[in-house]
């Protein structure tokens, strides 16, 4: 792997240089508690926050937008017309992505590229640029037990904090090209930097409130499908608002809707993020609902995140903490998992 070092005073120049590679998005502070990936123009580079907890909206939205036109149709001619936007749009340069979110994107890839290739997702993803950044956990984080606290692939560049700057790991050909073109910004990585990286990792590992490996949660959950307390108690609190799934970096469910035009012949078919917390998610033709109660919908998310992923040898949950942080009812997902597990 190729390593270079970016000193803190060069960050601004680095962000400005990234503008040449597409539309730059990076975390900014949007309120007292919240951060969000927003479009960064040259005038806004100073607003970029390098040290943030988690973003309100997950990175997947840049490759799998909340709402997108799948195709337009003409029912009279029995023809449909592909939406070219995904192929012609500028590449997204996503700066400041945490390791857990990079794992989240790889989980998205496993379903939208490896499993059933989705041309729109793939087009955006392939031209997109991911620049990761190291972080320290807060009390909501549990990426460590999800094996998502460190990544060695899935990014073009990854910035790891050292005392006076960042050690950049180069993770792709695109990453190499960016570094080649901006070589004047970097210095060589020293022994001190390497020691700093280790010190950062040690500090980080001590900050997590849970430890070990939660891969086995799958079995615990399946065996506790009828847990006497937790499902009823916790789902009673649930507002059914869907915040947990919308902010989740790995939720992949969508609904498909037709919007005809006023000519009565043409229209668009749109895909829109769905949530298993919504009633209609489990509703099928004929009126049967696979998850007719709030409790069954609540349980579904826990099962899906912990037990339904077989593709990338980990859970669909990456431990980012969003579903708890952004829950208006204060439902603590991490704590509930600990309770079901019967201990840390």
């Amino acid at each position: 792997m190729r390593y270079v070092k970016l000193k803190k005073e060069k960050i601004r120049e680095f962000l400005l240089a990234l503008q040449d590679y597409g539309e730059l998005y990076a975390p900014i502070k949007v309120s007292e508690k919240y951060f969000d990936f927003r479009r960064i123009t040259n005038e806004q580079v100073d607003e970029v926050v390098l040290d943030y907890n988690r973003t309100l909206r997950p990175p997947r939205r840049f490759f799998f937008p909340e709402k997108e036109v799948l195709f337009t149709f003409n029912s009279k001619k029995v023809e449909m017309y592909e939406n070219k936007e995904a192929f012609t749009s500028e590449p997204v340069v996503l700066f400041g992505v945490h390791a857990c979110d990079i794992v989240g994107l790889r989980i998205m890839d496993s379903r939208f590229i490896d499993d059933q290739p989705d041309p729109y997702y793939r087009a955006r993803r392939e031209k997109g640029i991911i620049i990761g950044i190291s972080c320290l956990p807060d009390e909501y984080c549990f990426c460590n037990v999800r094996r998502a606290e460190f990544v060695d692939s899935g990014f073009d560049l990854f910035l790891s904090e050292v005392e006076d700057g960042y050690v950049i790991r180069v993770g792709s050909v695109k990453g190499h090209k960016i570094i080649d073109a901006t070589e004047h910004l970097y210095v060589k990585v020293t022994k001190k930097d390497s020691d700093d990286l280790t010190a950062f990792d040690v500090k980080k590992s001590k900050m997590f409130t849970v430890s070990g490996n939660w891969d086995s949660l799958r079995y615990t959950l399946e065996l506790n499908d009828e847990h006497p307390v937790i499902w009823m108690r916790e789902s009673e609190k649930c507002l059914g608002c869907g915040n947990c799934t919308i902010t989740c970096p790995t939720c992949r469910c969508y609904d498909v809707k037709d919007y005809p035009n006023l000519d009565g012949e043409t229209g668009v078919r749109v895909r829109i993020w769905d949530s298993c917390q919504f009633r209609e998610h489990g509703l099928v033709a004929g009126g049967h609902n696979f998850r007719p109660t709030k409790e069954s919908r609540f349980k579904n998310r826990y099962m899906c995140k912990n037990a339904y992923c077989k593709e990338v040898t980990t859970a669909y949950c990456v431990g980012c903490g969003r579903c708890t942080y952004f829950c208006p009812a204060g439902i603590n997902y991490k704590q509930n998992l600990i309770e079901i597990r019967g201990g840390i």
Binding site: K33, G242, I246, P260, L262, R279
Partner: peptide, 30 residues
């Protein structure tokens, strides 16, 4: 337009929060 197309409008049975998060708003309740 759905009436003109010969179909019917689908009822929404999910809350405003969905569109609020899509819009990138902060949660005023939290």
């Amino acid at each position: 337009s759905t009436f003109l197309f010969g179909s019917w409008p689908e009822e929404k049975d999910y809350p405003v929060c969905q569109e609020c998060r899509f819009a990138g708003n902060i949660c005023l309740l939290i």
